[in-house]
Structures are given as structure tokens and as C-alpha cells.
Computed example of a mutant assay.
Amino acid sequence: MKTWPDTRIQELFGIPLPILQAPMAGVVTPQMVVAVSEAGGLGALPCAMLSLAQAREALDVIRQGTSRPINLNFFCHAPPPADAVRALAWRARLAPYYVELGLDPEAPVPASNRRPFDSDFCGLVEAYRPQVVSFHFGLPEQALLGRVKAAGAKVIASATTVAEARWLEARGCDAIIAMGWEAGGHRGSFLTDDMATQVGTFALVPQVVDAVKVPVIAAGGVADARGIVAAFALGAAAVQLGTAYLFCPEAKVAPAHRQALKTAPDDGTAVTNVFTGRPARGIVNRLMRELGPLSPHAPDFPLAGGPLTPLRNQTEPQGSPDFMPLWSGQAARLARELPAGELTRVLAEEALAKLSRG
């Protein structure tokens, strides 16, 4: 087989390969985006942890490196109202760690820097005109979404349930990312906060395919050619890989995080809210074991992260993973250490070879 069984995503985005690099905030570099897009996949720049100036700088580097399609990714969370009681309770939960490390539990802490999509970010889309814009935690208000579409971008977003997929299609998404329970990083949930009922990729993808008319992109637990072939067998038109790209030299991954990825067993991750206030899958570390993994005391997203910053600043330089998020999906053991462009090409070649034998 020299062609893919479903080419709708390639045609929709104008890319040769149905492989998307997940937009992982804090670890994706412009060099990774360029490498994936130049290899024929869809590179993605996450913007939620970037200022406008930083996003422009990154996009300038990307556009100097490639003219091929790229994806700009944004969060769509509603900033939570101030809750002094909950904030103080969280500081109290973390106080013993401050004392242990010789830090002042009463000292001011920095604010968390997750920015939702707004008019300024929309202006960035209009200025740089990426071929694809993706959203996490739902969609922005209709006026902003209309501006994104008017700029020529195809819109995609993450769904963790069939209901979320239908909601996204009804509001104009051109394709749906079916994000299974296995996926690393923040859950894309926005119609439910019940983590006990989240669905695995193998069960979610075909049900989303049956429920919507737009193409479906499988995400979660896909890290090698076998996963790609399985995704197409389930009806997906493309795959989105995150954890697999964390092993690439282009990824901005702290040494302790990289080491944890290399040694993570299949059951070494859990979904936690202790790092940001929102459920996300990462490798279990000390903070997750002792305060979570899901803590009722963690402030709403993204406010839980600010008080952790002094703890991270004190321990990460010594190589300790105790207080840092070690985002990872459940299939880290299947990943390989290859440059991002080579990984994209190799995965495509291996998947096509397996499809031709099937």
C-alpha cells in the first residue's frame, strides 16, 4: 500500500502525512515544529504559556524554517474567580515542603501563566495565518471563532467523550481530536470533570467516528506504527502523537523529566490535578503520591501552579523530579530517541508497510 486508507486530513490540511505533533506547552520548540512540518506531518506551536511577543518570536523562527502547514494551539479555559480561602488552604498543604527546603511559606509566589485565547491571540492568528488552529478545553466565543475561520484556518479541538465531539462539530470544527484516557498532559475535557468515566482511545475513537461527519484524529497511547495502524482500523483519518516527540532532541525537556520518561513503566503514570488544578496525565512522583494524584484542595486551573514554583526552583537544578510535572502518556515505553523529522518519516514508513501487509 503506497497510500493511506483515509486521506481526508491530508487533503484538509495540505500535508503529505497524517501525523500530527501534539502541541505540548512548555516543551515544544520552534525547531520541533519546523522539523515535523518539513517531514510532511503537522507541527504545532502551543501558545498558552507564551506572551504575544514570545509567540511572535517563535512564529518568526518557524516561518523562516518552513513554509509548510503548521498548527497554532490555544487553551479556552475561563479564568477562575479569586478564592482566598482555597488559596490559603493550598499554601498550607504545601507549607511542610517549604519548611523542609528552607523556604518561607509566607513569601509571595508568582502567578501561573496559562493564558486563554482572546482577541490579542486572535490577532496573532490573523497576522500569521496558520493553516490549522487547535483548541483545548472547548472553543472560544463565536465571534473569535469566526475571525479564526475568516483568516483561513481549519479549526480542530480535543474531545474526550462522544458528547464533546458532537458539541465541537455542531460549532464548526473541521476535524475532531478524539483524546483517549491514555494521553499524556492535560485532559481536553470541557463538558465533564468526572475523571472516573473517561474513555480509552480504543473505545473512544470508533464511537466518535460513528457520531460525527468530520474526520477524526486519534490521540492517546499512539507512539509507534502499530498504534497508527490501529487508529486507522478504528476509523481515524490521522493520529496525534505527544509523548513520542518528548524523546526527540528538539524537545525542551528537563533532564529529570527525560530520565523519568526513559524508565516509565506502563503503569507508571496517573491523572493528577496537583500541578495546575486541572486533570493531566504524568509520571507519578513524590508530590502526586503524597498530595494526590487528584486533590480536592488544589485551586482551580491554573492557580495551583504558582505556589509550586519556589519548590521547583529549589529542587529542579539538583535534578530532583519531586515537584515538577512529568507529563507523559501511557505508551512512553514504545517511544524512540530520534530527531523529530526522522521520527515522523519513520513512523509513516513503518505504518504504511504494516498497512500494505494487512
Rank of each mutant, 00 (worst) to 15 (best):
M1Y: 00
T3I: 09
L17A: 03
I19G: 03
P23E: 08
A25G: 04
T29R: 05
P30E: 12
M32N: 12
A35H: 04
E38I: 06
G41T: 06
L42D: 04
A44K: 01
L45P: 02
L45G: 01
L45K: 07
P46F: 11
A48W: 00
M49W: 01
L50T: 02
A55R: 01
E57Q: 12
A58S: 14
V61H: 01
I62P: 00
P69D: 12
L72E: 06
L72S: 04
N73M: 05
H77M: 02
P79E: 08
P79L: 07
P80N: 11
P80C: 13
P81H: 09
P81D: 13
A84N: 03
V85S: 12
L88R: 13
R91M: 07
R91L: 08
A92G: 05
A92V: 10
A95C: 10
A95E: 07
P96L: 11
P96W: 09
V99E: 15
V99Y: 05
E100R: 15
G102F: 10
L103G: 12
E106L: 12
V109E: 09
A111I: 06
N113E: 15
F117E: 00
D118P: 10
C122A: 15
G123D: 10
L124T: 00
Y128H: 08
S134I: 11
F135E: 02
H136S: 02
G138D: 11
G138H: 12
A143Q: 12
K149N: 03
A153D: 05
S158F: 09
T161A: 04
V162T: 13
R166V: 15
L168E: 07
G172Y: 02
I177V: 15
I177E: 00
I177Y: 05
G185M: 02
G185Y: 08
D193V: 06
T197M: 07
F202R: 14
L204Q: 08
D210E: 14
A211K: 01
V216N: 03
A218K: 05
A219K: 02
G221W: 02
D224A: 06
R226M: 03
G227Q: 08
V229F: 03
A230F: 02
A230V: 06
G235L: 03
Q240H: 06
L241G: 00
L241Y: 02
Y245I: 04
L246M: 13
E250A: 08
A251V: 03
K252S: 14
A254M: 12
P255V: 07
A256E: 13
A256F: 01
R258S: 14
L261F: 05
K262W: 05
T263I: 15
A264D: 01
A264V: 13
P265G: 06
G268T: 09
T269N: 06
N273A: 05
R278K: 15
A280G: 14
R281G: 11
I283C: 01
N285S: 03
L291H: 11
L294M: 15
S295M: 12
P296M: 06
H297Y: 12
P299V: 05
D300T: 09
D300F: 09
G306P: 11
G306R: 09
L308Q: 04
T309K: 15
R312T: 04
R312K: 13
G319C: 11
P321L: 13
D322K: 04
L326G: 08
W327V: 07
A331H: 08
P339H: 07
A340N: 10
A340D: 11
G341V: 07
T344Y: 04
T344G: 05
L347Y: 03
L347K: 00
E349T: 11
L352P: 03
S356T: 14
